[in-house]
Nucleic acid binder design. Structure first.
Lengths: 195, 195
DNA sequence: TCGCCGCCTTGACCTGGGTCAACCCGAGGG
DNA sequence: CCCTCGGGTTGACCCAGGTCAAGGCGGCGA
């Protein structure tokens, strides 16, 4: 077993036999990415996803008008991939880019589907993954509905303290749904008021 | 079998044995709700959910400041319930209210969990439900990130044509994340421009 | 050492949407 | 028949955030 810690984390979620995990490990491959390198480019088939071993990524949606908005940041222990597109079996509309030199553990969707046919634990895990990501999205939806940009900023750092210093400010702005100028002003206003 | 159409719809999603569906039907109960009646009140345990047979509902989150924001509208064939809270086994923070006289088919969470232990089809179905609701949330997140209020309005009616005339305007506004005054102005502006 | 580049800040100005308050209008009840 | 009430509209005013444009500044390659 190459990744016993990972196995423990997953086994805590759903009962996952060690031999099933070993099968998955055998199908997975490590990939190293340089800063700015893409794990997934828009237009590519969304037939693979990965677990971040080291580093930080941003998932970027490029709209028709060319504006970038950020769907998520992902760091160690989190999954990267065009999940929505994968579920719909469509090509990715999302770029997933390393913000630092990174290492990930890559799985092919097809391989996972194969594993699912062999043992129910994988379906249970897939369910957990779906439910977890649903909760993430619902939380963000609520923030957009109820909170000002400044309140969203405060929440962002509460929820992602591990990203401090690792993501450029303009990307935080794009995550919050505002421009980098607006974010800069919010921050300087807060600096003056609080100290 | 009381609801053969429902069964067909579900069976198209995951392979669902008829006898499992009959077990579920036996555990479910129909409930009739008057206009304005709550299927679920905030603070109540989120131990039940339902399928809408007839009518329209709104899921409302009441924030600390007393402002209402609308998480979703649900009509015939859709599920109502405090899904996020259910997944976290917390009391509901959401009110679910009938906007018209309605009929629903109620399931208890515990009963479903029991069914899950008996046959894998229920877990598969739960996975589908989670994935589907994830997609809904992700779509809405994207709309908040990339679209103006006016564009969100247009999308809303594209995505929910069946709600025309069944939901009050103020609720549409609360769904879009704006005030009823703002929505009113957007509509009158559009009336003038297009015709 | 210099100059460029990536990232952030600041300023001037504009605009979408919030807030408060008045008003309109159609449906039901007394 | 009028009154009320719920839901929608309109106006005046304000403010958060967008847009465009001009710097600032630290780091790195030539």
């Amino acid at each position: 077993m190459r990744f016993p810690k990972l196995f423990e984390r997953l086994a805590a979620q759903v009962s996952l036999p060690a031999e099933e995990w070993e099968k998955a490990e055998a199908l997975a491959s490590e990939q190293v990415l340089a800063r700015r390198e893409l794990f997934l480019q828009p237009g590519a088939p969304s037939d693979r996803f990965a677990l971040v071993l080291q580093g930080v990524f941003r998932a970027v949606r490029v709209s028709a008008s060319g504006a970038e908005s950020i769907k998520a940041f992902r760091a160690e222990g989190e999954l990267i991939g065009a999940y929505a597109e994968m579920l719909q079996r469509r090509p990715s509309m999302t770029a997933i880019e390393a913000l630092e030199p990174s290492r990930v553990l890559v799985f092919r969707t097809r391989d996972l589907e194969e594993l699912e046919r062999g043992h129910v634990c994988w379906e249970r895990l897939a369910r957990r993954v779906a439910e977890y990501h649903f909760l993430l999205k619902e939380r963000r939806e609520q923030e957009f509905l109820d909170l000002t940009a400044e309140e969203r900023l405060v929440r962002f750092w509460e929820e992602h303290p591990h990203l401090k210093g690792r993501v450029p400010q303009r990307d935080v702005a794009a995550y919050l749904g505002i421009t980098e100028e607006a974010l800069s002003r919010i921050m300087s206003r807060r600096r003056k008021q609080r100290g």
